[in-house]
Design a protein around this nucleic acid. Sequence first.
RNA 1: GGCGGCAUAGCCAAGUGGUAAGGCAGCGGUCUGCAAAACCGCCAUUCUCCGGUUCAAAUCCGGAUGCCGCCUCCA
Length: 486
Amino acid sequence: MKIYNSLKREKEEFVPLRDNEVRMYVCGITAYDYCHIGHARSAVVFDVLVRYLRDKGYKVIFVRNFTDIDDKIINRAHKENLPWDEVARKYIEAFYEDMDRLNILRADIEPKATEHIEEMIELTQKLIDMGFAYVTSRGDVYFRVRKFKTYGELSGRNIEELQAGARIEPGEEKEDPLDFALWKSAKPGEPKWPSPWGEGRPGWHLECSAMSEKYLGLPFDIHGGGQDLIFPHHENEKAQSEAAYSTSFVRYWVHNGFVQVNSEKMSKSLGNFVTIRDILNNYHPEVLRFFLLTKHYRSPLDYNLESVEEAEKGLKRIYQAVEELEAILSNKKWKKVKVDSSLIEEIKEQQDKFFLSLEDDLNTAKAIGYLFNTVRIVNRIATDKNLRKAEPMKDVLVEIREFLTRAGKILGVLNLAPAVFLEELKDIQLKRKNIAREEVEALIAKRQDARKNKDFALADSLREQLVALGIEVKDTPAGPVWEVVS
RNA sequence: GGCGGCAUAGCCAAGUGGUAAGGCAGCGGUCUGCAAAACCGCCAUUCUCCGGUUCAAAUCCGGAUGCCGCCUCCA
Protein backbone atom coordinates (compact mmCIF):
# COMPACT_ATOMS: atom_id res chain seq x y z
CA MET A 1 0.00 0.00 0.00
CA LYS A 2 0.96 3.63 -0.27
CA ILE A 3 1.30 5.72 2.84
CA TYR A 4 2.14 9.38 3.32
CA ASN A 5 5.43 9.77 5.13
CA SER A 6 5.63 13.06 7.01
CA LEU A 7 9.42 12.88 6.91
CA LYS A 8 9.57 12.78 3.10
CA ARG A 9 6.42 14.84 2.70
CA GLU A 10 5.06 12.46 0.07
CA LYS A 11 3.27 9.18 -0.37
CA GLU A 12 5.56 6.18 -0.44
CA GLU A 13 5.10 2.51 -1.11
CA PHE A 14 4.97 0.83 2.28
CA VAL A 15 7.45 -2.01 2.62
CA PRO A 16 8.18 -3.28 6.13
CA LEU A 17 11.79 -3.77 7.12
CA ARG A 18 11.27 -7.40 8.00
CA ASP A 19 9.40 -9.53 5.52
CA ASN A 20 5.97 -9.93 6.88
CA GLU A 21 6.24 -8.12 10.15
CA VAL A 22 5.18 -4.55 10.80
CA ARG A 23 6.46 -2.86 13.92
CA MET A 24 4.43 0.16 14.84
CA TYR A 25 4.45 2.68 17.67
CA VAL A 26 1.78 5.28 18.34
CA CYS A 27 1.98 7.95 21.00
CA GLY A 28 -0.74 7.32 23.52
CA ILE A 29 -2.30 9.71 25.96
CA THR A 30 -0.95 11.68 28.85
CA ALA A 31 -3.33 10.51 31.55
CA TYR A 32 -4.51 13.76 33.09
CA ASP A 33 -8.04 14.22 31.72
CA TYR A 34 -10.87 12.49 29.87
CA CYS A 35 -10.22 11.77 26.22
CA HIS A 36 -11.72 14.13 23.67
CA ILE A 37 -12.81 13.78 20.06
CA GLY A 38 -9.26 14.43 18.89
CA HIS A 39 -7.97 11.45 20.82
CA ALA A 40 -10.82 9.46 19.33
CA ARG A 41 -9.79 10.35 15.79
CA SER A 42 -6.18 9.44 16.34
CA ALA A 43 -7.14 6.18 18.02
CA VAL A 44 -9.59 5.25 15.28
CA VAL A 45 -7.20 6.11 12.44
CA PHE A 46 -4.36 4.00 13.76
CA ASP A 47 -6.74 1.26 14.80
CA VAL A 48 -7.94 1.04 11.21
CA LEU A 49 -4.35 1.06 9.96
CA VAL A 50 -3.50 -1.88 12.23
CA ARG A 51 -6.64 -3.74 11.23
CA TYR A 52 -5.98 -3.16 7.54
CA LEU A 53 -2.35 -4.26 7.74
CA ARG A 54 -3.47 -7.40 9.53
CA ASP A 55 -6.15 -7.98 6.89
CA LYS A 56 -3.40 -7.81 4.30
CA GLY A 57 -1.62 -10.61 6.12
CA TYR A 58 1.07 -8.72 8.00
CA LYS A 59 1.96 -9.65 11.51
CA VAL A 60 1.67 -6.32 13.29
CA ILE A 61 3.39 -5.61 16.57
CA PHE A 62 1.63 -2.56 17.87
CA VAL A 63 2.90 -0.51 20.81
CA ARG A 64 0.92 2.33 22.33
CA ASN A 65 2.26 3.96 25.47
CA PHE A 66 0.75 5.76 28.42
CA THR A 67 2.42 8.86 29.78
CA ASP A 68 1.67 8.46 33.46
CA ILE A 69 4.12 10.98 34.86
CA ASP A 70 4.24 14.53 33.58
CA ASP A 71 3.76 18.16 34.65
CA LYS A 72 0.14 18.10 33.55
CA ILE A 73 -0.58 15.10 35.75
CA ILE A 74 1.09 16.78 38.71
CA ASN A 75 -0.98 19.93 38.16
CA ARG A 76 -4.13 17.92 37.85
CA ALA A 77 -3.33 16.09 41.07
CA HIS A 78 -3.24 19.41 42.91
CA LYS A 79 -6.53 20.45 41.36
CA GLU A 80 -8.31 17.20 42.14
CA ASN A 81 -6.57 16.81 45.45
CA LEU A 82 -5.49 13.30 44.59
CA PRO A 83 -2.07 11.65 44.59
CA TRP A 84 -0.49 12.02 41.14
CA ASP A 85 -0.44 8.28 40.49
CA GLU A 86 -4.14 8.09 41.34
CA VAL A 87 -4.81 10.73 38.69
CA ALA A 88 -2.93 8.70 36.10
CA ARG A 89 -4.66 5.50 37.11
CA LYS A 90 -8.09 7.13 36.98
CA TYR A 91 -7.67 8.55 33.48
CA ILE A 92 -6.08 5.42 32.08
CA GLU A 93 -9.12 3.55 33.26
CA ALA A 94 -11.36 6.17 31.61
CA PHE A 95 -9.30 5.82 28.43
CA TYR A 96 -10.01 2.10 28.32
CA GLU A 97 -13.71 2.64 28.91
CA ASP A 98 -13.96 5.14 26.06
CA MET A 99 -11.77 3.22 23.65
CA ASP A 100 -13.52 -0.07 24.30
CA ARG A 101 -16.81 1.57 23.43
CA LEU A 102 -15.28 2.84 20.21
CA ASN A 103 -14.15 -0.69 19.42
CA ILE A 104 -10.46 0.24 19.46
CA LEU A 105 -8.30 -2.87 19.68
CA ARG A 106 -5.87 -3.09 22.55
CA ALA A 107 -2.27 -2.58 21.52
CA ASP A 108 -0.01 -5.61 21.81
CA ILE A 109 2.20 -3.77 24.26
CA GLU A 110 0.99 -0.82 26.34
CA PRO A 111 4.00 0.39 28.29
CA LYS A 112 3.83 3.06 30.98
CA ALA A 113 6.53 5.65 31.47
CA THR A 114 6.84 5.02 35.21
CA GLU A 115 7.60 1.37 34.55
CA HIS A 116 10.58 2.29 32.38
CA ILE A 117 12.50 4.77 34.50
CA GLU A 118 15.48 2.43 34.48
CA GLU A 119 15.62 2.35 30.67
CA MET A 120 15.27 6.11 30.46
CA ILE A 121 18.10 6.68 32.90
CA GLU A 122 20.30 4.37 30.85
CA LEU A 123 19.41 6.19 27.65
CA THR A 124 20.12 9.55 29.24
CA GLN A 125 23.48 8.32 30.53
CA LYS A 126 24.32 7.09 27.09
CA LEU A 127 23.57 10.48 25.58
CA ILE A 128 25.69 12.19 28.25
CA ASP A 129 28.58 9.82 27.59
CA MET A 130 28.33 10.51 23.87
CA GLY A 131 28.34 14.26 24.44
CA PHE A 132 24.77 14.73 23.24
CA ALA A 133 23.57 15.73 26.68
CA TYR A 134 24.84 17.56 29.75
CA VAL A 135 24.01 17.83 33.44
CA THR A 136 23.42 21.16 35.14
CA SER A 137 24.32 22.17 38.67
CA ARG A 138 20.81 21.57 39.94
CA GLY A 139 20.58 18.12 38.40
CA ASP A 140 18.68 18.70 35.18
CA VAL A 141 19.85 16.95 32.05
CA TYR A 142 19.44 18.59 28.66
CA PHE A 143 19.84 17.39 25.10
CA ARG A 144 22.34 19.42 23.09
CA VAL A 145 20.21 20.19 20.04
CA ARG A 146 22.89 21.86 17.93
CA LYS A 147 25.08 18.81 18.24
CA PHE A 148 22.49 16.73 16.39
CA LYS A 149 23.02 17.78 12.80
CA THR A 150 19.72 16.77 11.22
CA TYR A 151 17.60 18.39 13.93
CA GLY A 152 14.52 19.93 12.30
CA GLU A 153 14.42 17.43 9.45
CA LEU A 154 11.08 15.92 10.44
CA SER A 155 9.22 19.14 11.17
CA GLY A 156 10.82 21.00 8.27
CA ARG A 157 12.44 23.73 10.31
CA ASN A 158 15.93 24.97 10.61
CA ILE A 159 17.80 25.85 13.74
CA GLU A 160 17.72 29.58 13.04
CA GLU A 161 13.92 29.64 12.74
CA LEU A 162 13.56 27.73 15.94
CA GLN A 163 16.01 29.97 17.69
CA ALA A 164 13.60 32.90 17.39
CA GLY A 165 10.88 31.24 19.42
CA ALA A 166 13.03 29.48 21.97
CA ARG A 167 13.40 30.83 25.48
CA ILE A 168 15.22 29.97 28.64
CA GLU A 169 12.91 29.95 31.64
CA PRO A 170 14.11 31.62 34.81
CA GLY A 171 16.22 29.19 36.79
CA GLU A 172 17.03 26.95 33.86
CA GLU A 173 20.69 26.42 33.09
CA LYS A 174 20.55 25.56 29.42
CA GLU A 175 23.60 26.03 27.27
CA ASP A 176 21.30 26.95 24.44
CA PRO A 177 17.62 27.94 24.43
CA LEU A 178 16.92 25.16 21.90
CA ASP A 179 17.98 22.41 24.27
CA PHE A 180 15.25 20.29 25.79
CA ALA A 181 15.03 18.32 29.02
CA LEU A 182 15.83 14.63 29.25
CA TRP A 183 15.68 14.59 33.03
CA LYS A 184 14.08 17.10 35.36
CA SER A 185 15.28 17.46 38.93
CA ALA A 186 12.49 17.19 41.48
CA LYS A 187 11.16 20.22 43.26
CA PRO A 188 10.00 19.69 46.84
CA GLY A 189 6.85 17.62 47.01
CA GLU A 190 7.06 16.38 43.42
CA PRO A 191 7.19 12.73 42.42
CA LYS A 192 10.78 11.59 42.03
CA TRP A 193 13.07 8.71 41.25
CA PRO A 194 16.74 8.34 42.13
CA SER A 195 19.24 8.85 39.34
CA PRO A 196 22.96 9.47 38.90
CA TRP A 197 22.12 13.20 38.71
CA GLY A 198 19.98 13.34 41.80
CA GLU A 199 16.29 12.72 42.36
CA GLY A 200 13.97 13.70 39.57
CA ARG A 201 11.77 12.48 36.75
CA PRO A 202 12.11 11.88 33.03
CA GLY A 203 11.28 14.46 30.38
CA TRP A 204 8.30 13.73 28.18
CA HIS A 205 10.06 12.96 24.91
CA LEU A 206 12.40 10.45 26.48
CA GLU A 207 9.89 7.74 27.24
CA CYS A 208 8.94 7.08 23.63
CA SER A 209 12.59 6.78 22.62
CA ALA A 210 13.34 4.35 25.43
CA MET A 211 10.21 2.24 25.10
CA SER A 212 10.10 2.02 21.32
CA GLU A 213 13.70 0.81 21.28
CA LYS A 214 13.01 -1.71 24.02
CA TYR A 215 9.94 -3.27 22.42
CA LEU A 216 10.52 -2.78 18.71
CA GLY A 217 14.23 -2.20 18.12
CA LEU A 218 15.54 0.37 15.65
CA PRO A 219 14.65 1.27 13.07
CA PHE A 220 11.00 0.27 13.28
CA ASP A 221 8.39 0.71 10.57
CA ILE A 222 5.66 3.12 11.56
CA HIS A 223 5.47 5.86 14.14
CA GLY A 224 2.10 7.56 14.46
CA GLY A 225 0.39 10.37 16.29
CA GLY A 226 -1.47 13.61 15.83
CA GLN A 227 -0.03 16.29 13.57
CA ASP A 228 0.70 18.49 16.56
CA LEU A 229 3.19 15.97 17.85
CA ILE A 230 5.54 16.48 14.92
CA PHE A 231 7.11 19.40 16.71
CA PRO A 232 8.59 19.25 19.20
CA HIS A 233 7.74 15.77 20.45
CA HIS A 234 8.62 13.61 17.47
CA GLU A 235 11.48 15.80 16.37
CA ASN A 236 12.98 15.37 19.83
CA GLU A 237 12.32 11.66 20.01
CA LYS A 238 14.05 11.26 16.69
CA ALA A 239 17.05 13.28 17.83
CA GLN A 240 17.43 11.31 21.05
CA SER A 241 17.05 7.92 19.44
CA GLU A 242 19.20 8.54 16.40
CA ALA A 243 21.92 10.17 18.48
CA ALA A 244 21.98 7.38 21.04
CA TYR A 245 21.66 4.38 18.74
CA SER A 246 23.50 5.75 15.71
CA THR A 247 20.88 4.45 13.33
CA SER A 248 17.71 5.80 11.78
CA PHE A 249 14.76 5.77 14.13
CA VAL A 250 11.56 5.39 12.14
CA ARG A 251 10.88 4.42 8.53
CA TYR A 252 7.41 5.90 8.04
CA TRP A 253 6.09 8.78 10.10
CA VAL A 254 2.30 8.93 9.96
CA HIS A 255 0.32 11.84 11.37
CA ASN A 256 -3.41 12.38 11.51
CA GLY A 257 -5.09 15.75 11.02
CA PHE A 258 -6.83 17.75 13.69
CA VAL A 259 -10.46 17.82 14.71
CA GLN A 260 -12.15 21.18 14.90
CA VAL A 261 -15.38 21.83 16.72
CA ASN A 262 -17.94 23.92 14.87
CA SER A 263 -15.12 25.19 12.67
CA GLU A 264 -13.06 26.36 15.61
CA LYS A 265 -9.90 25.00 17.12
CA MET A 266 -10.63 22.93 20.16
CA SER A 267 -8.94 24.49 23.14
CA LYS A 268 -9.23 24.92 26.86
CA SER A 269 -9.47 28.67 26.52
CA LEU A 270 -12.42 28.52 24.12
CA GLY A 271 -14.03 26.01 26.43
CA ASN A 272 -15.10 23.86 23.51
CA PHE A 273 -13.46 20.58 24.44
CA VAL A 274 -15.76 17.74 23.51
CA THR A 275 -15.08 14.53 25.33
CA ILE A 276 -15.76 11.11 23.91
CA ARG A 277 -18.09 10.31 26.76
CA ASP A 278 -20.13 13.45 26.14
CA ILE A 279 -20.63 12.48 22.53
CA LEU A 280 -21.50 8.91 23.36
CA ASN A 281 -24.27 10.16 25.60
CA ASN A 282 -26.09 11.25 22.49
CA TYR A 283 -24.69 9.17 19.66
CA HIS A 284 -24.01 5.51 19.09
CA PRO A 285 -20.31 4.64 19.35
CA GLU A 286 -20.30 3.10 15.90
CA VAL A 287 -21.79 6.31 14.53
CA LEU A 288 -18.94 8.34 16.00
CA ARG A 289 -16.43 5.88 14.62
CA PHE A 290 -18.05 5.93 11.20
CA PHE A 291 -18.15 9.72 11.24
CA LEU A 292 -14.42 9.88 11.96
CA LEU A 293 -13.76 7.71 8.92
CA THR A 294 -15.85 9.74 6.47
CA LYS A 295 -12.99 12.12 5.86
CA HIS A 296 -9.40 11.34 4.89
CA TYR A 297 -7.23 10.94 7.98
CA ARG A 298 -4.78 13.73 7.10
CA SER A 299 -7.41 16.40 6.46
CA PRO A 300 -8.82 18.57 9.17
CA LEU A 301 -12.19 17.26 10.32
CA ASP A 302 -14.93 19.51 11.61
CA TYR A 303 -17.03 18.05 14.40
CA ASN A 304 -20.57 19.40 14.40
CA LEU A 305 -23.95 17.87 15.08
CA GLU A 306 -25.18 18.06 11.49
CA SER A 307 -22.22 16.05 10.21
CA VAL A 308 -22.51 13.42 12.92
CA GLU A 309 -26.22 13.02 12.25
CA GLU A 310 -25.49 12.65 8.58
CA ALA A 311 -23.04 9.88 9.44
CA GLU A 312 -25.75 8.35 11.61
CA LYS A 313 -28.13 8.23 8.65
CA GLY A 314 -25.43 6.78 6.45
CA LEU A 315 -24.49 4.00 8.83
CA LYS A 316 -28.16 3.22 9.37
CA ARG A 317 -28.60 2.89 5.62
CA ILE A 318 -25.79 0.35 5.46
CA TYR A 319 -27.14 -1.64 8.40
CA GLN A 320 -30.61 -1.70 6.88
CA ALA A 321 -29.18 -3.11 3.69
CA VAL A 322 -27.34 -5.80 5.64
CA GLU A 323 -30.58 -6.65 7.40
CA GLU A 324 -32.34 -6.90 4.05
CA LEU A 325 -29.52 -8.99 2.65
CA GLU A 326 -29.84 -11.44 5.50
CA ALA A 327 -33.58 -11.60 5.02
CA ILE A 328 -33.10 -12.54 1.36
CA LEU A 329 -30.52 -15.15 2.25
CA SER A 330 -32.84 -16.75 4.78
CA ASN A 331 -35.07 -17.65 1.85
CA LYS A 332 -34.99 -21.36 1.12
CA LYS A 333 -36.82 -21.49 -2.21
CA TRP A 334 -34.53 -20.32 -4.99
CA LYS A 335 -35.74 -20.19 -8.57
CA LYS A 336 -33.65 -21.40 -11.45
CA VAL A 337 -33.59 -18.35 -13.71
CA LYS A 338 -30.94 -16.53 -15.67
CA VAL A 339 -29.66 -13.18 -14.44
CA ASP A 340 -27.72 -10.44 -16.08
CA SER A 341 -24.02 -10.96 -15.40
CA SER A 342 -23.25 -7.25 -15.57
CA LEU A 343 -24.77 -6.87 -12.12
CA ILE A 344 -22.33 -9.39 -10.74
CA GLU A 345 -19.44 -7.58 -12.34
CA GLU A 346 -20.63 -4.32 -10.91
CA ILE A 347 -20.57 -5.83 -7.44
CA LYS A 348 -17.04 -7.12 -7.85
CA GLU A 349 -15.94 -3.74 -9.07
CA GLN A 350 -17.12 -2.08 -5.85
CA GLN A 351 -15.16 -4.56 -3.78
CA ASP A 352 -11.98 -4.05 -5.77
CA LYS A 353 -12.29 -0.31 -5.54
CA PHE A 354 -12.93 -0.47 -1.82
CA PHE A 355 -9.60 -2.15 -1.25
CA LEU A 356 -7.78 0.00 -3.78
CA SER A 357 -8.95 3.04 -1.85
CA LEU A 358 -7.42 1.72 1.35
CA GLU A 359 -4.25 0.88 -0.56
CA ASP A 360 -3.96 4.54 -1.41
CA ASP A 361 -2.94 6.10 1.88
CA LEU A 362 -5.79 4.55 3.82
CA ASN A 363 -8.51 6.53 2.05
CA THR A 364 -11.46 5.45 4.15
CA ALA A 365 -13.66 8.27 2.87
CA LYS A 366 -13.35 7.00 -0.67
CA ALA A 367 -13.70 3.38 0.41
CA ILE A 368 -16.96 4.16 2.19
CA GLY A 369 -18.31 5.53 -1.10
CA TYR A 370 -17.96 2.04 -2.60
CA LEU A 371 -19.67 0.61 0.43
CA PHE A 372 -22.65 2.80 -0.39
CA ASN A 373 -22.56 1.66 -4.00
CA THR A 374 -22.70 -1.91 -2.76
CA VAL A 375 -25.65 -1.02 -0.57
CA ARG A 376 -27.51 0.39 -3.55
CA ILE A 377 -26.93 -2.82 -5.48
CA VAL A 378 -28.21 -4.91 -2.57
CA ASN A 379 -31.32 -2.78 -2.38
CA ARG A 380 -31.82 -3.04 -6.10
CA ILE A 381 -31.77 -6.82 -5.82
CA ALA A 382 -34.06 -6.66 -2.82
CA THR A 383 -36.70 -4.63 -4.63
CA ASP A 384 -36.69 -6.92 -7.66
CA LYS A 385 -39.11 -9.79 -7.03
CA ASN A 386 -37.37 -12.07 -9.50
CA LEU A 387 -33.81 -11.27 -8.66
CA ARG A 388 -34.17 -11.77 -4.95
CA LYS A 389 -35.24 -15.36 -5.50
CA ALA A 390 -32.98 -16.17 -8.40
CA GLU A 391 -30.72 -19.13 -7.71
CA PRO A 392 -27.63 -17.56 -9.38
CA MET A 393 -27.86 -14.61 -7.00
CA LYS A 394 -27.45 -16.78 -3.94
CA ASP A 395 -23.67 -17.12 -4.11
CA VAL A 396 -23.34 -13.51 -5.08
CA LEU A 397 -25.35 -12.39 -2.09
CA VAL A 398 -23.29 -14.58 0.21
CA GLU A 399 -20.19 -12.99 -1.25
CA ILE A 400 -21.55 -9.51 -0.63
CA ARG A 401 -22.32 -10.48 2.94
CA GLU A 402 -18.75 -11.67 3.40
CA PHE A 403 -17.38 -8.54 1.80
CA LEU A 404 -19.40 -6.29 4.09
CA THR A 405 -18.28 -8.29 7.10
CA ARG A 406 -14.65 -7.99 6.07
CA ALA A 407 -14.98 -4.29 5.33
CA GLY A 408 -16.66 -3.80 8.67
CA LYS A 409 -13.88 -5.63 10.43
CA ILE A 410 -11.28 -3.37 8.86
CA LEU A 411 -13.17 -0.17 9.59
CA GLY A 412 -14.33 -1.43 12.97
CA VAL A 413 -17.99 -0.84 12.19
CA LEU A 414 -20.91 -3.13 11.20
CA ASN A 415 -19.85 -5.05 14.23
CA LEU A 416 -23.35 -5.75 15.51
CA ALA A 417 -26.30 -7.74 14.24
CA PRO A 418 -28.40 -5.26 12.23
CA ALA A 419 -31.45 -5.67 14.46
CA VAL A 420 -29.35 -5.00 17.55
CA PHE A 421 -27.74 -1.91 16.09
CA LEU A 422 -31.04 -0.53 14.85
CA GLU A 423 -32.65 -1.00 18.25
CA GLU A 424 -29.71 0.58 20.06
CA LEU A 425 -29.81 3.45 17.62
CA LYS A 426 -33.52 3.91 18.23
CA ASP A 427 -32.98 4.01 21.98
CA ILE A 428 -30.29 6.62 21.77
CA GLN A 429 -32.32 8.73 19.36
CA LEU A 430 -35.34 8.60 21.66
CA LYS A 431 -33.12 9.59 24.56
CA ARG A 432 -31.78 12.50 22.53
CA LYS A 433 -35.31 13.69 21.82
CA ASN A 434 -36.46 12.92 25.31
CA ILE A 435 -39.32 10.72 24.18
CA ALA A 436 -40.43 7.57 25.98
CA ARG A 437 -40.73 4.39 23.96
CA GLU A 438 -44.08 3.63 25.62
CA GLU A 439 -45.50 6.93 24.48
CA VAL A 440 -44.71 6.11 20.88
CA GLU A 441 -46.01 2.59 21.10
CA ALA A 442 -49.28 3.72 22.65
CA LEU A 443 -49.91 6.15 19.79
CA ILE A 444 -49.11 3.49 17.25
CA ALA A 445 -51.49 1.02 18.86
CA LYS A 446 -54.22 3.62 18.77
CA ARG A 447 -53.55 4.29 15.11
CA GLN A 448 -53.70 0.58 14.30
CA ASP A 449 -57.14 0.38 15.86
CA ALA A 450 -58.27 3.34 13.81
CA ARG A 451 -56.91 1.75 10.65
CA LYS A 452 -58.68 -1.52 11.38
CA ASN A 453 -61.88 0.43 11.72
CA LYS A 454 -61.08 2.20 8.46
CA ASP A 455 -61.14 5.48 10.36
CA PHE A 456 -58.38 6.92 8.20
CA ALA A 457 -59.00 10.45 9.34
CA LEU A 458 -58.13 9.49 12.92
CA ALA A 459 -55.27 7.31 11.73
CA ASP A 460 -53.81 10.20 9.80
CA SER A 461 -54.12 12.63 12.66
CA LEU A 462 -52.30 10.15 14.89
CA ARG A 463 -49.61 9.84 12.25
CA GLU A 464 -49.27 13.59 12.29
CA GLN A 465 -48.89 13.57 16.04
CA LEU A 466 -46.11 11.04 15.69
CA VAL A 467 -44.41 13.04 12.98
CA ALA A 468 -44.55 16.07 15.24
CA LEU A 469 -42.66 14.04 17.83
CA GLY A 470 -40.12 13.09 15.19
CA ILE A 471 -41.42 9.56 14.66
CA GLU A 472 -42.19 8.10 11.27
CA VAL A 473 -44.39 5.07 10.95
CA LYS A 474 -44.25 2.74 8.01
CA ASP A 475 -46.92 0.17 7.39
CA THR A 476 -45.54 -3.18 6.33
CA PRO A 477 -47.30 -6.49 5.68
CA ALA A 478 -46.01 -7.57 9.08
CA GLY A 479 -47.52 -4.56 10.81
CA PRO A 480 -46.38 -1.02 11.56
CA VAL A 481 -42.69 -0.29 12.02
CA TRP A 482 -41.48 3.02 13.36
CA GLU A 483 -38.31 5.03 13.23
CA VAL A 484 -36.97 8.17 14.78
CA VAL A 485 -36.12 10.87 12.27
CA SER A 486 -34.30 14.10 12.86
C1' G B 1 7.20 37.57 11.49
C1' G B 2 8.78 32.26 9.92
C1' C B 3 7.04 27.34 8.14
C1' G B 4 3.07 24.36 6.26
C1' G B 5 -1.89 23.10 4.65
C1' C B 6 -6.62 23.93 2.44
C1' A B 7 -10.31 26.38 -1.09
C1' U B 8 -14.95 21.00 -5.41
C1' A B 9 -23.04 21.62 -6.00
C1' G B 10 -27.63 24.04 -0.61
C1' C B 11 -24.46 21.09 3.05
C1' C B 12 -20.59 17.02 4.00
C1' A B 13 -17.01 14.84 0.82
C1' A B 14 -13.65 11.74 -2.94
C1' G B 15 -10.83 12.96 -6.86
C1' U B 16 -2.54 14.72 -8.13
C1' G B 17 -2.83 15.32 -16.29
C1' G B 18 -7.63 12.55 -19.94
C1' U B 19 -12.73 15.28 -19.41
C1' A B 20 -16.42 15.76 -11.87
C1' A B 21 -17.22 8.98 -6.68
C1' G B 22 -20.38 8.77 -2.58
C1' G B 23 -23.63 10.67 1.39
C1' C B 24 -27.32 14.29 3.31
C1' A B 25 -31.07 17.66 1.67
C1' G B 26 -34.36 18.80 -2.67
C1' C B 27 -37.44 17.69 -7.14
C1' G B 28 -40.19 14.02 -10.54
C1' G B 29 -41.78 8.77 -10.90
C1' U B 30 -42.81 3.42 -9.05
C1' C B 31 -44.95 1.40 -4.58
C1' U B 32 -48.83 2.88 -0.68
C1' G B 33 -55.87 3.95 1.92
C1' C B 34 -52.29 8.11 3.12
C1' A B 35 -47.27 7.98 4.24
C1' A B 36 -42.34 6.10 5.05
C1' A B 37 -38.37 2.95 3.49
C1' A B 38 -36.40 1.10 -0.99
C1' C B 39 -35.75 1.48 -6.22
C1' C B 40 -35.60 4.50 -11.02
C1' G B 41 -34.70 9.45 -12.96
C1' C B 42 -33.11 14.69 -12.16
C1' C B 43 -29.74 17.80 -9.28
C1' A B 44 -21.54 21.18 -10.48
C1' U B 45 -20.35 22.22 -19.11
C1' U B 46 -17.68 22.93 -13.88
C1' C B 47 -13.91 22.65 -9.39
C1' U B 48 -12.17 30.75 -5.14
C1' C B 49 -10.08 34.35 -8.86
C1' C B 50 -6.26 35.84 -12.69
C1' G B 51 -2.38 34.33 -15.82
C1' G B 52 0.92 30.25 -17.76
C1' U B 53 2.57 25.05 -19.38
C1' U B 54 0.08 21.06 -22.33
C1' C B 55 -3.27 17.98 -27.74
C1' A B 56 -5.61 17.78 -22.81
C1' A B 57 -5.70 20.72 -15.87
C1' A B 58 -10.09 20.54 -10.37
C1' U B 59 -5.40 18.06 -10.84
C1' C B 60 1.26 20.99 -12.85
C1' C B 61 3.65 26.27 -12.52
C1' G B 62 3.29 31.68 -11.12
C1' G B 63 0.34 35.45 -8.84
C1' A B 64 -4.06 37.30 -6.00
C1' U B 65 -7.88 36.64 -2.31
C1' G B 66 -9.93 33.92 1.75
C1' C B 67 -9.72 30.24 5.69
C1' C B 68 -6.84 27.09 8.91
C1' G B 69 -2.75 24.78 11.51
C1' C B 70 2.24 24.79 13.61
C1' C B 71 6.33 27.83 15.64
C1' U B 72 4.48 27.24 23.69
C1' C B 73 1.24 22.15 26.63
C1' C B 74 -1.94 19.71 23.10
C1' A B 75 -4.34 13.79 19.32
